[in-house]
């Protein structure tokens, strides 16, 4: 029953198709991929910089980077949640390792992230800010983010087979986590004694470290990195465990 074949191409093909299909039929097409975070940025920037007048240095870049990283997390996990369901038509008809569809979903959102980062790069260059060598560490940061999203997606996709309301719960959770992560506000606004709790959310670290390395040219502290990487590994292992344990019946439960 095992076909020794390379499933990498299948992952890429499915991801590419999903990306193509996403804005199918809309006039602007994939431009939406770029427009969406920009519009989101504009709204938040208006509210927090013009109305509320937060006084944060480099607020535009600060906010834009935060939004892009958060959007990858939120879209990635959401699309991961539906990964099995959305591909039920092929899961029910063709055998292949089910994990392929979760990989495909994570790659598909990765395409969006890459395009968004190009916009960020454009903004960054226009702003004339100095480019720090530490900015290269952003890639490491994003790699950890990728595995975090993948781990959560693996968990959610199989939980969704059993509990069809997990999507509602996850939506509420994402909404809360958006405000509990330092996306629109700098971490310094939080009283020092509560900051620790904010860091329990690995997204706090991932967003914070991205800004630190790209905008400020600093290297994050070691223990924080260990926690973020450690919790990502734990979630990834949990995801792999749950997925291998429960996905084999996906074809009949969908």
């Amino acid at each position: 029953m095992k076909n020794s074949q390379n499933y990498f191409e299948l992952v890429m093909r499915l991801a590419l198709t999903d990306f193509k299909m996403r804005y199918q039929g809309s006039v602007l097409g994939f431009v939406w991929t770029l427009l969406k975070p920009l519009l989101q940025f504009l709204v938040l920037y208006m509210v927090f910089s013009v109305f509320i007048r937060l006084n944060v240095p480099n607020y535009q870049l600060y906010l834009l980077l935060g939004i892009m990283i958060w959007n990858y997390f939120s879209e990635g996990t959401n699309s991961g949640l539906y990964a099995l369901l959305n591909k039920s038509n092929i899961i029910k008809k063709v055998y292949f390792p089910r994990i392929v569809v979760v990989f495909a979903s994570s790659v598909h959102t990765l395409i969006t992230l890459s395009l968004n980062l190009l916009i960020f790069l454009a903004f960054f260059l226009l702003s004339g800010k100095p480019i720090h060598l530490t900015a290269l560490l952003l890639l490491v940061d994003l790699a950890v983010l990728y595995f975090l999203v993948l781990g959560i997606s693996l968990c959610l996709s199989v939980i969704f087979l059993k509990f069809r309301d997990i999507n509602q719960i996850w939506e509420v959770f994402l909404n809360a986590a958006f405000y509990l992560s330092p996306i629109i506000y700098p971490l310094e606004f939080i009283p020092a004694k509560y900051r620790f709790f904010l860091f329990l959310n690995p997204m706090t670290g991932l967003i914070q470290y991205a800004r630190l390395t790209v905008l400020e040219g600093k290297i994050p502290n070691f223990s924080g990195v260990i926690y973020v990487v450690g919790s990502t590994i734990v979630i990834l292992i949990l995801g792999l465990f749950l997925f291998t344990r429960f996905s084999h019946k996906a074809a009949e439960e969908l």
Partner: peptide, 24 residues
């Protein structure tokens, strides 16, 4: 399997073919 009405015949051949285990 996996045919998508919104895609062209060309894209569907690649999609369906890949699902069936063919390489590009």
């Amino acid at each position: 399997v996996g045919f998508n009405a919104e895609l062209s015949a060309r894209d569907n051949i690649y999609l369906n073919g890949t699902v069936l285990g063919l390489s590009k």
